[in-house]
Design a protein around this nucleic acid. Structure first.
Lengths: 116, 116
DNA sequence: CTCATAGTCAAGCATCAACTTAACTATTAG
DNA sequence: CTAATAGTTAAGTTGATGCTTGACTATGAG
């Protein structure tokens, strides 16, 4: 667990930008070059590249340069990190609600009247 | 779908901060007052309140004020929004990999030699 | 070789975000 | 009533972000 917190920071931060989520959506349909990613975003290549770099540092994509084009591909590690953190908090919360529910049920059957 | 994109911005942005994730972790174990949330974070009440407000605007928590204390509780809507967005991109990606796999398998059996 | 393409790097700039402090408003305890 | 508690608001500081432009570096096409 190398800098788990920092990685979470980076992934959530990366996904907080609509342009970067747009890149992820595009990549979820298959690999693409930086230019292809830049085009629908209505921004310069330089800006798109910066987004790609942010996503790469956060583990959401990987890229290789072949000739003069850099091809980007989705990497699940980043998304998984975020998904697991969320799932884990959600689980704790629901488990707590279950215990609460159980407790209330117990008190009810322990009390004066119990239906059926 | 009222400003779906904006809501995603807010949720991911909210979770990008370690202090706010700390609040979520605390709340996943049960409700707490703003002071209780502020204490382990080593920051002023005012700062903690600001984090609470960010989380509330993003749908990650709800709060009610009773007397002079404000009690915060986890709200799954925010976490779910983020979780579903991630799950959806992940699903697209995996489906694509499956199709690719299938395609390669077809070409192999269609080709010259097929072992076993 | 010569030009266009695809990307990269480095400033520079306009916001935005995360605090802080200070002043102020209920509540509640004594 | 008087004080302490819990929160709220506003203003200001500092540092991070998202872009842009301009200069420069491969690569690929004619």
């Amino acid at each position: 667990m190398l800098d788990y917190e920092g990685n979470l920071d980076r992934v959530f931060q990366a996904l907080a930008d609509p342009a970067r989520r747009g890149i992820v959506e595009r990549l979820s349909r298959g690999p693409a070059s930086v230019s292809e990613l830049a085009h629908p975003l209505d921004m310069t290549l330089a800006a798109a590249l910066q987004h790609v770099q942010v996503l790469e540092r956060s583990g959401v994509l990987t890229s290789r340069k072949v000739g003069r084009t850099r091809t980007c591909e989705l990497e699940l590690a980043g998304l998984d990190l975020a998904a697991k953190w969320i799932a884990s908090r959600r689980a704790l919360w629901e488990r707590r609600l279950d215990r609460l529910d159980e407790l209330l049920r117990d008190e009810a059957t322990d009390g004066s009247d119990e239906a059926e």
